[in-house]
């Protein structure tokens, strides 16, 4: 376990050290104090615990690493993540998990607007609620929301699956409720387990996805 204190090392030194780490390395980052771009571009099976709140783009482009934030996170958390795991103990700001291809994002608090925008295969589990335009153009992956969703959930969604426990203020274009079948209950149970959520039953969720009405050009969709 190695300590990196951002009061003593620069952000660039911190990221270089983390990016050059070996598999199995363990790091604790102190005094993050809302700084941007912490722990970006990691590509080893390593664990990083950040003891504090972080700013923009934390854990961006992550591959394989297991990153925990013991506080709140700013905009663009785990943007374009490929694999690995990012766990935020507080809340996150806008476009968490944008365009992420793989791995798992777990948010214990709320996520704000555009969570999972254009997600391409990542799994996102939010213990709280999400803001407007979440899962906009979501292409692939699973998105679990234990609270409520803001306006236009899943607008122009492709093949991502949304599991929502509360209510959406509105559904976006082409996003509809779909039947929960056994395979969905099974994968939802696995996702909840992955996020250590044991007090919520899969039966409390509804599934949402694409009506696939926007896949082909239709003159009725033109303004």
């Amino acid at each position: 376990m190695k300590n990196l204190d951002l009061n003593n090392v620069s952000l660039r030194e911190l990221n270089q050290e983390l990016q050059n780490a070996q598999n199995g390395a363990q790091y604790v980052v102190e005094n993050s104090n809302g700084k941007h771009n912490i722990a970006v571009g990691l590509n080893k099976e390593q664990s990083v615990t950040i003891n504090g709140h972080v700013g923009y783009y934390c854990a961006g482009m992550n591959q394989k690493a297991d990153i925990t934030v013991e506080g709140n996170a700013g905009s663009g958390l785990a943007e374009n993540m490929m694999s690995g795991k990012v766990h935020v103990k507080g809340g996150v700001s806008q476009y968490c998990g944008a365009t992420a291809h793989g791995g798992t994002i777990i948010i214990d608090g709320d996520a704000s607007a555009r969570c999972g925008i254009s997600m391409k295969g990542v799994d996102i589990v939010v213990r709280g609620s999400v803001g407007h335009m979440s899962a906009f153009m979501a292409q692939k992956g699973r998105f679990v929301i234990c609270g409520d969703a803001g306006n236009a959930l899943g607008d122009s969604i492709y093949e991502a699956r949304i599991y929502l426990r509360g209510k959406a203020q509105s559904l976006g274009a082409d996003c509809i409720e779909k039947e929960m079948q056994d395979e969905h209950r099974k994968e939802l149970a696995e996702l909840l387990k992955k996020a250590d959520i044991t007090d919520i039953s899969v039966d409390e969720f509804k599934r949402y996805g694409s009506a696939r009405k926007l896949y082909n050009f239709s003159v009725d969709n033109a303004y």
Binding site: N33, G34, N72, G91, S93, S112
Partner: peptide
């Protein structure tokens, strides 16, 4: 604009925190 500008206020750990809706 960012949470970091609020993080040092006394009692922030018990604050309810949200982003205003558009």
């Amino acid at each position: 604009s960012e949470f970091r500008a609020i993080a040092m206020l006394p009692g922030v750990e018990n604050a309810s925190i949200w982003e205003p809706e558009p």
